[in-house]
Amino acid sequence: MIYLGHLPKHDQLYPYLCYDILSQFNLNGIKPDFRVYKLQASNHVYLYEERQSHIRLIGKFFSGISERTPDSAYRHMEREFNNLNHLRNLGFIGYPHYVARPLGHNAALNCVLIEEFCYGIPLSDFIMKAIRDGAREVLFRKLTSLAWFLSSLHNKTANGLPVDFNQDSNYFDRIMDQLKGLGYMEWDEANGFYRLRDRWREKGCMWEDQQVLVHGDVTPTNVLFGDGHWVIAIDLERMKMADRVFDVGRMAGEIKHCFMQYTGDKGIAEAFIGHFLWEYACHFPDRNSTFNSITRRVPFYMGLTLLRISRNSWVSDRYRRKLIDEARETLR
């Protein structure tokens, strides 16, 4: 988080925050003064802290993103605003499962979404403490809480329709196109991945479950934890109907990546991944059957996640090769 200074009163955002957003907090008799902080995120995300009341707001701007048209920015803003409201309407408004409260959105201000600031510790911090300080038991407990949250989200939103694995195959192809376009993968290697994708598409287990609402971007930085089983979900612009293992496998892949990156030993992650999957399965009538079902499908989504991470510009060439090789092994 980088401190940028104070929001100028002549900035068009200032009256919007004052009259449309702060009015929801029943503040009287103050002249708002906002400190501004830049947050690390894929979008343009800022923290606005009103100096006197100490109210904190998150401003997420969807315009100004590379290769995003104005229409696309508007759709992203609307989608996340509606997704936040939808989950809150489903009951994610208190302990132990919470979704950040949207306070407003404005297309005229660079497609900004304003939501409440949520206090919590990201899962990434607990992973790093397990790696650096040996705090394994705390990470196990937080993964138990996360499994409960995801199973609650998925089970509340199942629609009875069969999953369409073609959608995830198409997403796989988009990731591959990006890797090839960036020069990170040659055609011969890509063809090998396409053959693995086709083998997964032939498996009946990839089509057997029903659609649920998935977070869509459940990463260690997009999940916050409080005391006990508190879980707070943020960044919901990619929420969609899909296979529940889209989320579960994404998180398993992220955990493996973290241990690969910071310890060089992917095997250390296995105990945490297995615990997370077993805890997820406990929220179903037949735990063993559910565990067997999701673990049959998890490798595809783990491999997809590793490929997805390998696209990032911050990834070194050496580690990118390690991610791609591990993705291939996982998909096999």
Score class of each variant (00 low, 15 high):
Glu137Val: 12
Glu137Lys: 12
Glu137Ala: 14
Glu137Asn: 13
Leu139Tyr: 07
Leu139Asp: 05
Leu139Gly: 05
Phe140Arg: 13
Arg141Met: 13
Lys142Ala: 08
Leu143Met: 13
Thr144Ser: 15
Thr144Val: 11
Thr144Tyr: 15
Thr144Leu: 09
Ala147Leu: 06
Ala147Trp: 05
Ser151Trp: 01
Leu153His: 01
Asn155Ala: 07
Asn155Trp: 03
Lys156Ala: 08
Thr157Gly: 01
Asn159Asp: 14
Gly160Val: 08
Leu161Thr: 10
Leu161Met: 12
Pro162Ile: 06
Val163Ser: 04
Asp164Asn: 15
Asn166Met: 05
Phe172Glu: 06
Asp173Ala: 12
Met176Ala: 12
Asp177Val: 05
Asp177Phe: 06
Leu179Tyr: 04
Lys180Leu: 15
Lys180Tyr: 07
Gly181Phe: 08
Gly183Glu: 06
Tyr184Ala: 07
Asp188Arg: 15
Glu189Thr: 15
Glu189Cys: 12
Ala190Pro: 01
Ala190Gly: 08
Gly192Tyr: 10
Phe193Trp: 07
Phe193Asn: 08
Phe193Gly: 09
Tyr194Arg: 14
Leu196His: 05
Arg197Met: 11
Arg197His: 08
Arg199Gly: 04
Arg199Phe: 02
Trp200Glu: 00
Trp200Tyr: 10
Arg201Gly: 11
Arg201Gln: 14
Arg201Pro: 03
Glu202His: 09
Glu202Ile: 06
Glu202Cys: 14
Glu202Gly: 15
Lys203Ile: 03
Cys205Glu: 12
Met206Val: 12
Trp207Met: 06
Glu208Thr: 05
Glu208Phe: 02
Glu208Asn: 05
Gln210Tyr: 09
Gln211Ser: 05
Gln211Lys: 10
Val212Pro: 00
Val212Gly: 01
Leu213Ser: 00
His215Tyr: 01
Gly216His: 04
Val218Gln: 01
Val218Lys: 00
Pro220His: 03
Val223Gly: 01
Val223Arg: 00
Leu224Cys: 01
Phe225Leu: 09
Gly226His: 05
Asp227Met: 10
Gly228Ile: 04
His229Gly: 07
Trp230Gln: 15
Trp230Ala: 13
Ile232Thr: 09
Ala233Phe: 02
Ala233Val: 05
Ala233Gly: 07
Ile234Glu: 00
Ile234Trp: 00
Asp235Val: 00
Leu236Val: 01
Lys240Val: 03
Ala242Phe: 03
Ala242Leu: 05
Asp243Ile: 04
